[in-house]
Design a protein around this nucleic acid. Sequence first.
DNA 1: TAGTATAGGATTGCATGCAATGTAAATGAA
DNA 2: TTCATTTACATTGCATGCAATCCTATACTA
Lengths: 241, 241
Amino acid sequence: MQSNKTSMASNTEAVTARLRELILTGELPQGERVTESGLAALLEVSRTPVRLALATLEQEELVEGVPNRGFRVRRFTLEDIREIIEVRANLEGMAARLAAENGATREQEAVLSRCVDEVDEIIAEKVCEREVFRRFSDINIRFHTTIAKISGNATLQRLLERVTTLPFLIAPLVYVLPDEEAFGTIIEGQRDHIRLLEAIQQGQGARAEFLMREHALMPLSRAALLLQHTGAKSLPLRQAV
Amino acid sequence: MQSNKTSMASNTEAVTARLRELILTGELPQGERVTESGLAALLEVSRTPVRLALATLEQEELVEGVPNRGFRVRRFTLEDIREIIEVRANLEGMAARLAAENGATREQEAVLSRCVDEVDEIIAEKVCEREVFRRFSDINIRFHTTIAKISGNATLQRLLERVTTLPFLIAPLVYVLPDEEAFGTIIEGQRDHIRLLEAIQQGQGARAEFLMREHALMPLSRAALLLQHTGAKSLPLRQAV
DNA sequence: TAGTATAGGATTGCATGCAATGTAAATGAA
DNA sequence: TTCATTTACATTGCATGCAATCCTATACTA
């Protein structure tokens, strides 16, 4: 029975993306056992694309396969998150160093400058609204991915994507903090960004590396804060925005 | 038609391992286009496990999928190799730093010491045979994976495995160098290992990190040498041992 | 002759059937 | 009542058929 739904590019990719979303938003709870057939029914596709998708997500470590019993949504403890963030900090540091050593093109440098300027505007407006935090998050992501690009190392870029899609790139956690505190993290982050930009412009590789390492560790303290505030055991990977 | 061959644990895993092997040893040449059906016929299985295996290998970046035209064995240029080695050097450096900071257990430290001792023996024997290089390679791998373990960061360990299975962990390239030169790299590497062990024992994180970074870059110059010696365009990923 | 259109072939992408495997429950014996 | 054995069920793992898609080659027209 060929389903006559709105046909889309690739079913498997769609299923993979959808499942990833379900996991990251917590709609599939951490630790939950999932079966091919169950997901297939849920997503209204056959088992085949689900199977492929699960294989992919297993490599991404979002699900873990138990030998002959299917899969389970991975559970992320604060410890797991800490490890991932520390690795990411190291890789981001490397990217910053390479960026400083290689030097950015005029356009790339312009992108970074604009990021700083736009955040300056946000800070000047002094408005603590959800919408503002979302804007900041976008800018922030742009800043970091641009540096990764400037590094010129494709492998590094890929690995960074991997450890970045997982737990909250930088910002989303601010949503659960009191507005004032959250706004404070924006200001703090902006200071780091300004210094980073300077280091990259002046070709100061080591300085850029260590500034970035420190900067990328910020979410760690926020994760701990989150646990205090909510009293939860396992961490939501991403806040619905 | 249920094939009545010698049944084995999991077919998909076996196929994945076999394909990985075929690619790393160059039996499937870099750049070669591969089809599900072709590989299925070659390995005498159906297309299903091959499909799964290819999905896995795509994530490992050993093959790249062209949209609707199946897959192609990835081509590794010297540039690609350089990027991977540099990322690996960074991650290994991080592992060394964490190892020094956390401190090793008594057993772990013993494993590292034994590695150093065994290589000392090899050097003392002054025999330049293939068998000796293979022994060294094993010891070397043990040394590095042990440090990764000591780091205590599981994510880091996983990422290291990933960038390590790919291009020649450390030693295999010595096979294509003149024996004397190759033996020289063993001696050189041993000096690094001794210092690393010392740094880790004394909890000198920064020193361990930078020693390891430098140490892990050694294969890079060897790769360049290899290109000179053979005049080849793309690099063999692993030498059949 | 060159360019376009069409037909054929090759290959993927997906659905589904079937067997193997492992788990849990139920029944029987001590 | 408790433990062992067997049976039934749930679930994966694999094979294969079929349709959709893309590439290529050939033929036809300008």
